[in-house]
Amino acid sequence: MKTLQFTEKTAYQGESIYVGIDVHKKNWGICILGDYLERKVYSQPPQPEVLVNYLHTHFPGASYYSAYEAGFNGFWIDRELQRYGINNVVVNPSDIPTTDKNDKRDARKIAKGLRHGNLRRIYVPHQYILEDRLLLRGRQKLLADIKRCKCRIKSQLHFFGIKIPEALDKPYWSRSFRHWLQTKLFEGSAQVLLTAQLEELESIERQKKNIEKQIIALAKGKYNQFVSLLRSIPGIGILAAMTLITELVNMEVLRRQIRCIAFWGLVPNVYVSGETEIVRGMTERHNAFLKPILIQAAWRAAKLDPSLMLTYNQLCRRMKPNKAIIRIAKKLSNRIRYVWKNQISYQNL
């Protein structure tokens, strides 16, 4: 049986081809839809040029539209597809309902949502912003590594029943405490392990200091204007300001106030079924790196700003402090949004 071959370069002129891409490390699940029919569902190597060649070969002259979920691959796929002339969008995975792990079905849902216009594009930052964002995120991960190292060392001390001297009990991890850890507390293998753990801790701390130096250099350099504006808000320091800048990037994307608060994860999870409405904690759909920074800034702001301190004290009379600080964080986020949007220092309001 002969296969149909297209010799005309404009065979699909005026038609639209919608491509759903389910991105994985070793392969991509692809679903190709036309205006009315499903054209092809298959798997391919994780290379944009392979998809582009297939589209130009089998659907020449058409207008190409594609979409994939944001994830571990970042945004380099979007840049490559755009460079090849494909109108690509990157979407939030939460916008695409899934019921199982079938790659073809996931790609099909993405393609159908793209064809029906139900997918909302997320903002794709420039390359230099992404690099600076990873620098801030890398610092937060190093902080978690430092905490784990400290917990391992203390766990080893508790395991062998070694008590920390009262003079060194607080504050933890002072110079005298570290010097005490370096003395011969164990015999044999346990001391070798403790020495290795201390060396790992000091190595990670040096990495964190180097990253913080680079962050401060960026704050005093190309981000100086934005950092100065954000630092005028009580509770916002250099690291918090840099995290806000690299994660938010463009405040115009978050035009509505409620959308901005939801992006920071400061709205509750609400489940509605008929007349039943259930509220379960805070939403899981948010930027995981912004929320903790904003909560930390809210605790500082509640101590530094008289109006926020008064509000916090009033809230604590009718709710727990951890819930009250969420309200303070919302107020702080409104200040950040206003200062950013209007490019005016908070002290001049």
Score class of each variant (00 low, 15 high):
174 S>R: 07
174 S>L: 03
174 S>F: 03
175 R>K: 13
175 R>S: 10
175 R>L: 05
175 R>H: 03
176 S>D: 13
177 F>H: 15
177 F>A: 14
177 F>I: 04
177 F>D: 12
178 R>C: 12
178 R>Y: 01
178 R>W: 00
178 R>F: 04
179 H>Y: 06
179 H>A: 15
179 H>G: 05
179 H>E: 14
180 W>K: 04
180 W>M: 05
180 W>D: 12
180 W>V: 01
180 W>R: 06
180 W>Q: 02
180 W>I: 02
181 L>C: 10
181 L>N: 07
181 L>V: 03
181 L>I: 04
182 Q>K: 15
183 T>Q: 15
183 T>R: 15
183 T>E: 15
183 T>C: 08
184 K>N: 14
184 K>G: 00
184 K>F: 05
185 L>N: 09
185 L>Y: 01
186 F>G: 03
186 F>Y: 14
187 E>A: 09
188 G>Q: 03
188 G>H: 05
188 G>Y: 09
188 G>A: 03
190 A>C: 11
190 A>K: 11
190 A>T: 10
190 A>H: 12
190 A>W: 07
190 A>M: 11
190 A>F: 12
190 A>S: 13
190 A>R: 11
190 A>I: 05
191 Q>H: 07
191 Q>I: 07
191 Q>W: 09
191 Q>D: 13
191 Q>R: 06
191 Q>F: 09
192 V>H: 08
192 V>K: 13
192 V>I: 11
192 V>M: 13
193 L>G: 01
193 L>Q: 02
193 L>C: 07
194 L>M: 11
194 L>D: 06
194 L>P: 06
194 L>Y: 05
194 L>G: 06
194 L>C: 06
195 T>E: 15
195 T>Q: 14
195 T>F: 06
195 T>N: 15
196 A>Y: 01
196 A>E: 08
196 A>F: 00
196 A>R: 01
196 A>I: 00
197 Q>D: 11
197 Q>E: 12
198 L>F: 03
198 L>T: 00
199 E>T: 08
199 E>N: 10
200 E>M: 07
201 L>S: 02
201 L>Q: 04
201 L>M: 11
201 L>K: 02
201 L>Y: 00
202 E>N: 00
203 S>C: 09
203 S>Y: 07
203 S>R: 04
203 S>D: 10
203 S>M: 08
204 I>T: 09
205 E>A: 10
205 E>K: 10
205 E>G: 02
206 R>T: 15
206 R>F: 03
206 R>A: 14
206 R>W: 00
207 Q>R: 13
208 K>T: 10
208 K>E: 13
208 K>Q: 13
208 K>P: 03
208 K>R: 11
208 K>D: 11
209 K>P: 00
209 K>V: 07
209 K>E: 14
209 K>N: 05
210 N>T: 11
210 N>Q: 14
210 N>V: 08
210 N>E: 15
210 N>C: 12
210 N>H: 12
211 I>W: 01
211 I>P: 04
211 I>C: 10
211 I>K: 06
212 E>P: 05
212 E>L: 11
213 K>R: 09
213 K>Q: 10
213 K>M: 05
213 K>P: 01
213 K>D: 13
213 K>F: 04
213 K>W: 00
214 Q>Y: 00
214 Q>T: 14
214 Q>I: 01
